[in-house]
Amino acid sequence: MDAFAVGRFRTLARRGELGRDPGAVDAATAYAFAQLAKRVGPDAVAGLEQPVLTVFGLLADANLAKGGELPAVERAIVDNFHRLYYHRLEQTWKQTYWRGVHVWKNPLDLWLYQEILHDVAPEVIVEAGTKFGGSAYFLANMCDLMGRGQIVTIDVTEQPNRPQHDRITYLTGSSTDTAVIEKVDRIIDGKRIVVLLDSDHSARHVLAELRAWHDRVPVGSYVIVEDTNVHGHPVFPNHGPGPMEAVDSFLAENDQFIIDESMHKFFMTFNPRGFLKRIA
């Protein structure tokens, strides 16, 4: 960020609301951040933090007052909180528990899951990626509350001391392995299902999962592709093509599913564009 941009920031920040040109503020902010992004090292940003925060705060206030008329500002706020939350993992999502069991999920997403279970009323929930069993346990308890449903959860690795529950069936193997899919098919046996994909996050594997499982999901139900936030969407930019890229490839070849935009209502989700609802 050069001296001109900093001076422009300070001038704009001093003006009253009527005298401030929102377009000029927006343009100056975009330009200054673009210049700042090209710099590296603490010396490059020394003394600039407060002007940036001041103007960004003004933009954020304007966005709230006008009901989201500055979508780039809103996106920046959400994305930066998302990055903060995600990268403080030892404080946040890796320290999230359901009834004492680790559940490595965003709690906002868990709330969406219970809404989906209420609306769809699945008889079976198929989960690819078990880890500690916390999410399977959460889903089983939601099924307890609703008085219906069971969970089939699949992982290539067994973990000790996973929670035991009458509604949970643990399977060991790959979610794309024919033998594992056949075992799940015997449990499903025509029942109404929801599918959650949270195993290997490579684009290749997730696309294979989508191709394997999508036709088992009835109209009105969901395939939920988790962790579409990696590979810079907006976190973990060095991950490599992952779940988001698999979703894009899948939707390009399949018109039976849409992205359910209503599932973005809490602003931050670990599964952006990953709530795929079957419509045909």
Score class of each variant (00 low, 15 high):
P160D: 07
D255Y: 06
P107I: 07
Q50G: 08
R83E: 06
I258Y: 14
A140E: 04
H87A: 07
K277P: 00
H239W: 11
Q256Y: 00
W93Y: 07
H231D: 14
Y85C: 05
T269Q: 02
G134W: 05
A62R: 14
F270C: 04
E90F: 01
S199T: 10
H205Y: 15
H102M: 08
L197Q: 10
A121P: 07
H118A: 15
I279C: 00
L112P: 11
A212L: 09
F257Y: 13
F250Q: 05
L145K: 04
V223Q: 03
R88H: 15
E123A: 15
A246H: 09
G149M: 05
Q95T: 15
E253Q: 12
R14L: 12
Y85D: 03
P234I: 02
I151K: 08
A140K: 03
A60M: 02
R10Q: 15
A136E: 00
L210A: 04
A246Q: 01
S249N: 08
F267M: 12
G16C: 01
L59Q: 06
L197F: 06
F275E: 09
P272A: 12
D248G: 07
L89R: 14
K131Q: 15
G47D: 14
T228D: 00
G68A: 06
A179F: 12
Q35N: 07
L112N: 04
H264A: 15
W104S: 07
A140N: 09
Q256V: 09
A252F: 04
F257H: 09
A72Y: 03
W104Y: 15
N229C: 10
L139A: 02
V219P: 13
D119W: 03
L210M: 07
R39H: 10
M263P: 05
L196Y: 08
A30V: 13
